[in-house]
Amino acid sequence: MTAAPVDRRPRRTLRQKLGTGARLVAALVLAGGVYTAFAPSSHAEDTKQLSVAAQKGQQLYNTSCISCHGKNAEGVQDRGPSLVGVGSAAVEFQVTTGRMPMSRQEAQASRKTPHFDDTQAKQLGAYIESLGGGPQIPDGDLRKGDVAAGGELYRVNCSSCHGFSAGGGALSSGKYAPSLHPSTDRQIYAAMLTGPQNMPVFGDNELTPQEKMDIISYVQNMKSDQSPGGWDIGAIGPTTEGLAIFLIGITALLFATLWIAGKS
């Protein structure tokens, strides 16, 4: 015959159970606290330092840039370069001129209607800046330069590609120096600082911030110049002038000869 097994162990009181639990918790808290106090805390600090702007920038990055520049902006082979260390100036230039996000891979990204507004561009810039630093565009008025000095610097440093009248010019194999006519002060400054695409970098040792502002003043002044001689026919020199004398001048005078000969 079998009897129902009987638990012979002494029954633990509720009080005893609670006490064990409390001790366990206390030990865990102690161990965790000691670990937290002594262990390297980089990860925790990293997330903490992302400003609100950078966080928003990260979100934009993850939706629009990540496919070519990679999960951590480390770059993707044959698609997009690493952005670590390019700085917010480069990001702002590329994004506010509409060059990034790029529509397709070709000789050179061209200016188009920007996909992000200026605030979003600054947020993206803040995120990229947080990854590895890099050049930044100074705040404040960038046009407080000397126009004449800027003109001299422009002609020595810029006109060989962008042309005397800043209308742009051709480079080899489909590359080109773009027109500066739609450029803002910040974009010109950022371009000099970061050397986008085929442009050389004009760091602060080549052109000091003051010289950069001189150049910006000159370029913007030239754009506001109401070409004193009349219609500037593109301001690209003798090419269009030669075209004009044949298309307008010779054509008009040929009609005049026909008219006069028709009357006599």
Partner: peptide, 11 residues
Amino acid sequence: AVVSSASQPDW
């Protein structure tokens, strides 16, 4: 040292 892109002579 000064030169410009699109430096052309007259036609």
